[in-house]
Amino acid sequence: MADEILQIRDLQIEFVSEGEVTKAVNGVDLTIAEGKTLGLVGETGAGKTTTALSVLNLVPKPQGKILSGEVILDGVNVLEQSEHEMEKIRGNTVSMIFQDPMSALNPVMSVGEQIAEVVKIHEKVDEKAAMERAREMLETVGIPGERAVEYPHQFSGGMKQRVLIAIALACSPKVLLADEPTTALDVTIQAQVLELMKELKRKFNMAMLMITHDFGIVAEVCDEVSVMYAGKIVEHGTLEDVFDHKCHPYTEGLFNSLPDIDNRKSELKPIKGQMPDPTNLPTGCPFHPRCDYCTERCSQEEPPKVQINDTHYVRCWLYENTKESQLKG
């Protein structure tokens, strides 16, 4: 397909520290088409952020090692690029917004200067034009342009996240990586920021990788969703596939752990047990010790990718012979 802007194939990353090997990412495949948004959902330690950092070729070294795989961004495998070439790509073709807006801005530079800085790095423009652009970007994210001369401490949390979005979008990237961009914000502010992101995505026609743990946010802004567990994508599909025809027991467990807003008497059915220790992953399917459908085979052999339909796949032995959902609900 020609319109795939980001393609990750069989990515494997591990971290080594004090003699222990942490398997962070274990064979992730994902693709995002131009202008589409993919939600990457999972809990702490699932490897979501590491996957995103690999797109910027910023997996921390020397502890982090990319064992295999390729990350093709706009036709270029970023894992093979030199640091110098990566500098041209970061902030230009792809940029990232982080979870904590409080620590991501430099406190001694005005927000205008911080936006202009990105513009000057990637485009041959003078100081004045860059500042002009910074002001435009602030207006785009809903902050009056004249506030460009103010410093980060004069902005509230939600405003800072808007500034970070402005920085990320200053060079009209083709791909935006958003790592839990609203987790640190209050609900009403989160609603404002999500609304803004949806609008900007349409305007700039960017592709977006939205990392989150919240299916509510996925439902709101994403076109497709991948559910990640212990460094693997265990289920992937369109919103309809995953919300209405969920197949993987882990996906089911996540939905059952959420309180139903319309039925306050409904019982929560949590997933039993804890996240596996990433230095010592279970054999076979990594989810099998917590799974209600676990069979003998699950603990020994890793389940293959089973294609349910054109857009929907799942990694689970339940679907070896059937394409129908096997979950009890």
Binding site: A191, A219, L239
Partner: peptide, 8 residues
């Protein structure tokens, strides 16, 4: 109304 509801 600002709660992101997990349904489509």
């Amino acid at each position: 109304s600002a709660i992101p509801v997990p349904r489509i």
